[in-house]
């Protein structure tokens, strides 16, 4: 698998490393994907890197690569953001993968080997829910709201009604709420706030987890929040050019 720039892979790693310590990457002709629970079993993370993300991609036989995210991150940090990354996994020798970083002028090339692990990852079946509410908004705006309100209180309540979407945090000595209306003024798609809902709903989540989730803002300029009563929220970052996505399912808090 060859990526034109290591930046995408670095951002993906940064988006999951606080939540997932080790995980299986499933490789098949469609691309590379992973699904993992955080240690607290409160968030399910799904990453999909489609063939479209790669400069070249070939997968003769489906393979599962057990990867420890810590050393993987250390190796990736050795790659310049603009350097080409080639990941090779041999079917005959499945105890490691090779990573090669090359910069454009090829005046520099670095090669790494990463030992693979045997991880008995249980896959969770995520039902295709029809959502009671969906919000799409700039990922940077969602990140700022979450980071700001997480300072106010550890519980983040998200309410969707005809007023728009209201984010509320409650602490011991302060409380804050921010209301977003669907934006029709701005024309740039990536700046718009769109809200659709079938019935009003209000749910509460752990702000520290939502903070970790917003790190994926580096991957996509927009984020989609999908909510349904008594269901984990799905926070989805779609990468452009159908390159793939990262989805977080965060379990709610019970009233």
């Amino acid at each position: 698998a060859r990526l034109p720039r290591s930046a995408v892979l670095k951002k993906i790693l940064d988006s999951v490393k606080d939540l997932v310590k080790e995980t299986n990457w499933d490789c098949n002709e469609e691309g590379m994907s992973m699904q993992a629970l955080d240690t607290g079993r409160i968030v399910l993370v799904e990453v999909m890197l489609r063939e479209a993300a790669f400069e070249s991609y070939a997968c003769e036989v489906p393979m599962t690569l057990g990867i420890d995210m810590e050393p993987f991150g250390k190796v990736l940090r050795c790659a310049g953001g603009d350097e080409k990354v080639t990941i090779k996994a041999s079917r005959n020798d499945q105890d490691h993968i090779e990573l090669v970083f090359e910069n454009e002028e090829k005046e520099r090339m670095s090669a790494f080997e990463l030992k693979l692990m045997d991880i008995d990852g249980e896959h969770m079946a995520v039902p295709d829910a029809e959502w009671g509410a969906e919000i799409s908004m700039p990922s940077s705006e969602f990140k700022k709201i979450v980071m700001d309100l997480a300072e106010i209180g550890s519980d983040l309540t998200i309410a969707v009604s005809k007023l728009g979407v209201t984010f509320t945090a409650q602490g011991n000595n302060c409380k804050g709420s921010m209301v977003l209306q669907p934006s029709t003024a701005v024309d740039k798609k990536s700046e718009q706030v769109a809200i659709s809902f079938t019935e009003p709903l209000e749910m509460t989540f752990a702000a520290p987890y939502m903070k970790m989730i917003t790190k994926a803002a580096a991957l996509s300029s927009t984020v989609t929040l999908s909510l349904d009563e008594a269901c984990p929220i799905c926070v989805r970052y779609e990468m452009e050019d159908n390159a793939g996505h990262i989805k977080y399912y965060l379990a709610p808090k019970e009233d």
Partner: peptide, 14 residues
Amino acid sequence: KPRQLLISRFFAPA
């Protein structure tokens, strides 16, 4: 204080 629920309450192993 609202109680944190776990993912396994909503999603079953595949």
